Computed example of a mutant assay.
Amino acid sequence: MSKVRKAYHGLQRLLKFSPWILKILYFNFHYFPFKQAVKLPVLLRKPHFIKLKGKVIIDNPKVRFGMITMGKLVNTCNPDSGIILDLDGMLIFKGEAIFANNSAIMIQDDGIITLGSHMDCAGQIKCAKRIEFGDDCVLAYNSMVMDSDWHALTDVVSGKLVKKTAPVKIGNNNFISFNCLVTKGTVTPDFCTFTYNSHLCKKYDVEPYSLLGGNPCRLLDEGYYYDRNNN
């Protein structure tokens, strides 16, 4: 594709986000170095800014226009509410990402979320300490990932608070279907698929290409994976 044609398509795409251009400009120039910000790597549709503190980093040598899209209307059966951003920690993008309508990201204090390349998210991610996704992951609509219980319990004998946070690490090419809940301490291998309404809550010592599901989540079958390029 020629540079002129590429620029034309880029302009057409930007025009679709024109109602939110001021917020797009603010977000990009607030978080990124000038050489990255002028490329407008992040496009926002119906963004709701609760807090824009901390850092947002694109850890990729090839930063380009619109490589990260947030609030895109993908699921027409879900509320067309854009994306909610409540950032007070660090958000790291390793590459391209799409966040659909009705998605949200919340990072507290020193929390860190790392998203592998080609992240596809239509759910909510709530981070107190550390959440990491590998490359080519899908988090389907109405699903939530969180590394904290958020409300600690007190031991009646010792009076101490029960540990309420533990890191979450999702392997490469994981597909987490709709209405799933991923809670603290979850660790998954590469190429795993989780069926709808599953509760992920521990380290899963299974082979790649495993199909898991249920509450609590368990191994259902083997020899399957989600190929986003052939689906």
Results as ranks from 00 to 15, higher is better:
120 D>F: 13
209 Y>W: 04
134 G>W: 13
15 L>H: 06
173 N>T: 08
129 K>C: 07
161 L>S: 12
112 I>N: 09
24 I>S: 02
53 K>C: 14
57 I>K: 11
70 M>Y: 05
9 H>K: 12
194 F>S: 10
38 V>K: 14
228 R>S: 00
75 N>A: 04
69 T>S: 13
8 Y>W: 07
101 N>C: 10
41 P>L: 03
20 W>G: 08
39 K>Q: 14
214 G>N: 14
212 L>I: 12
51 K>A: 05
92 I>V: 15
109 D>H: 15
159 G>K: 06
108 Q>K: 13
17 F>V: 01
37 A>R: 02
116 G>E: 01
99 F>Y: 08
101 N>G: 11
107 I>S: 10
2 S>N: 11
149 D>I: 04
89 G>A: 06
14 L>H: 01
76 T>R: 10
65 F>C: 10
206 V>M: 07
217 C>F: 07
167 P>T: 12
37 A>I: 07
104 A>E: 04
154 T>V: 12
93 F>C: 02
15 L>R: 04
112 I>G: 06
36 Q>D: 15
122 A>W: 00
137 C>Y: 14
144 M>S: 14
112 I>P: 02
27 F>W: 00
32 F>S: 15
181 L>K: 15
191 F>E: 05
99 F>R: 05
11 L>F: 13
132 E>S: 15
168 V>Q: 11
156 V>S: 11
203 K>Q: 08
74 V>T: 05
51 K>D: 14
149 D>E: 10
168 V>S: 14
158 S>V: 06
13 R>H: 10
76 T>E: 07
214 G>A: 08
124 Q>H: 12
136 D>S: 09
130 R>E: 13
220 L>H: 05
88 D>E: 01
156 V>A: 13
42 V>I: 06
208 P>V: 12
88 D>M: 02
153 L>W: 02
9 H>Y: 12
39 K>M: 00
179 N>V: 08
